[in-house]
Nucleic acid binder design. Structure first.
Lengths: 235, 235
DNA sequence: TGTACATCAGTGAACGCGCGTTCACTGATGTAC
DNA sequence: TGTACATCAGTGAACGCGCGTTCACTGATGTAC
């Protein structure tokens, strides 16, 4: 499929990339709600109607951007995870690697973070294909838990209360996809850590730390350290 | 200021309330970005220009709605907290009361939750007066921590690492406003619990639990139980 | 109690705006023979 | 290698839309004397 591409095909790919680049820049500046085909066309010095050769309309373009954002975030998390495992380091360092990378990504792209974890754009449904990068991101985060468990280094909370079975059922899809051999409490605390990660980043990125948390990075690290303990990683 | 109100004043108050009620309904249905003076006026069978007698324009109306949302959420949290302290119950029950109330509020009003904790509306700055209800909400959440500490029932993590002083500085405004007599680690973990609460609710409300967390309420409770432990409440 | 004037809620027409999308077209690129 | 035709990127005009906001106005309510 690769070699004998015609000039037309090559130009088409290039223009597609240019459109996406401009759209991404607009998104970063003004947010999803303000994304406009006409203003993108203006920046590209094209007629607005020309964009319809490349995307089916505004919603299709937005979908492409959302998918790009998911992919970029998942890629960044996977990259950070790979790096942490190639370097020397203990469980804590490995656990912190992905959260730090995710935070850095989000701080650099607040609107794209909002596109993924903020209020859904009203009247618009996110494409199904986001499931794959979403799972990749979660897997990168939880890899230290999985590996610590395989080595028998994971502290597991023994929960004896009655909610065990119901909780297990409520978390079945997550266990199956990410933590097949873990105790219910481990799965539950993985979800807890996930919620904490998203929460602490969203609060920072959406401006809620203003005048209250003066050093977001420091507090972020302390929070994710707690999470390491919570999910059972030995420090 | 109360007694001798003219008919005009009474009608003005009523119409103001009607406008806010319709605007709130539109907000709940379509979200903040779609809020339109013209459509509100249509519902009220008024000319669009008539709304300018009551609000300075679209942004002023949106500000009023945001303030209302903050107030309503803080009120609900304070109510739940008061109730929990009037009833018999242990520290855990009291700790869970406010988070559960906040979650219930958010699930019932996803768009209003998004207005407070979702992506900021682009090009729009939230009014300063949100600081007060925001603090009320945080105080209601943390009241069990404050009271347990006063009774000497709070478990305090002794952190000996070097980041103590810096962390203390980073959290100074929060200590001052909410936890004046607490250890740094307690303040930090209060922030952790806050981030977790916002994260776990946002993930549910913004649709990220779909097909992964099958019983959000159960998982929410388990998460906030963990948080109780984390902030040092004895169970 | 009655009158003259001031206040103010609400009307309806108009403004200019930017938007997404459609459509008939031109002209360049690619393909089949 | 050359010709006839098909494909397709991009143009430019036009559509209808709903929006926020302004403005001169009408008529009812409130106030001062």
């Amino acid at each position: 499929m690769s070699a004998p591409r015609t000039a037309r095909e090559r130009v088409r790919d290039e223009v597609t990339k240019e459109i996406l680049a401009v759209a991404r820049a607009h998104l970063a500046r003004d947010g999803a709600a303000a994304l406009s085909l006409r203003s993108i066309a203006r920046d590209l010095q094209m007629a607005p109607s020309a964009l319809y050769r490349y995307f089916d309309g505004r919603d299709a373009l937005l979908s492409a951007l959302i998918l790009e954002a998911y992919g970029s975030l998942a890629e960044e998390a996977a990259r950070a995870s790979g790096l942490a495992y190639r370097e020397a380091g203990n469980d804590l360092a490995r656990w912190l690697a992905v959260p730090r990378a995710v935070r850095a990504w989000a701080v650099a792209r607040p609107h794209e973070w909002g596109l993924i974890f903020g209020s859904p754009v009203p009247g618009y449904r996110a494409p199904e294909e986001t499931v794959v990068p979403y799972a990749r991101l979660a897997a990168a985060l939880l890899r230290p838990v999985v590996e610590a468990q395989e080595r028998g280094h994971l502290a597991v909370e023994v929960t004896a209360d009655g909610t065990g079975a119901a909780l297990d059922g409520a978390l079945a899809p997550i266990r199956q996809a990410l933590l097949p051999d873990s105790a219910t409490s481990t799965v539950q605390r993985a979800v807890h850590a996930w919620a904490t990660l998203i929460g602490v980043i969203s609060l920072e990125v959406f401006g809620h730390w203003r005048d209250t948390v003066l050093d977001p990075e420091l507090v972020f690290d302390a929070t994710m350290r707690d999470s390491a303990l919570l999910v059972g990683l030995a420090l």
